[in-house]
């Protein structure tokens, strides 16, 4: 798959963060980026559209990024979906919870355009998607 064809869903409740992450991804060559502000919208979006990667914040409404990750991992059709947590949450016990739940990568904010690009390419390459 070409980088520009990778479908990415960004989930963050802070609008300025969503805009920044989308900008970084687009500048890195990922043109197919969609964003939502709640886990509810994310779940709805996942039911109507196929994505290759979800990049989610941890603390969002009405549940949280960990709940979204768990929802995806038990979903009959989406359980292999690549998931990167992009969050300011760096408490050790919570990072371990995300790893146990099957997160593909975990990025602590602040995140630079170079770091975003490297992480996304690394994870997608590892999964054989690009």
């Amino acid at each position: 798959m070409k980088q520009e064809d990778v479908r990415i869903l960004v989930v963050d409740d802070v609008n300025s963060m969503r805009v920044q992450i989308k900008d970084m991804l687009r500048k890195a060559g990922f043109k197919n980026v969609h964003s939502v502000s709640t886990t509810q919208e994310a779940k709805r979006q996942l039911e109507i559209e196929k994505f290759d990667l979800v990049m989610s914040d941890w603390r969002i409404e009405p549940t949280d990024g960990l709940d979204l990750l768990k929802y995806i991992r038990i979903h009959p059709e989406q359980n292999k979906l690549t998931f990167i947590m992009v969050t300011a949450e760096d408490a050790k016990d919570l990072v371990i919870q995300a790893i146990k739940a099957g997160v593909d990568d975990y990025v602590v904010k602040p995140v630079s355009p170079v770091q975003i690009q490297a992480k996304v390419i690394e994870v997608l390459t590892k999964k054989g998607l690009i």
Partner: peptide, 20 residues
């Protein structure tokens, strides 16, 4: 705590470390 977490993450990202 949730609101402070949101402020921390965004302030870090926007280069406002003293706020974060």
């Amino acid at each position: 705590s949730d609101r402070m977490f949101a402020i921390k993450g965004t302030a870090r990202q926007l280069g406002l470390p003293h706020v974060a």
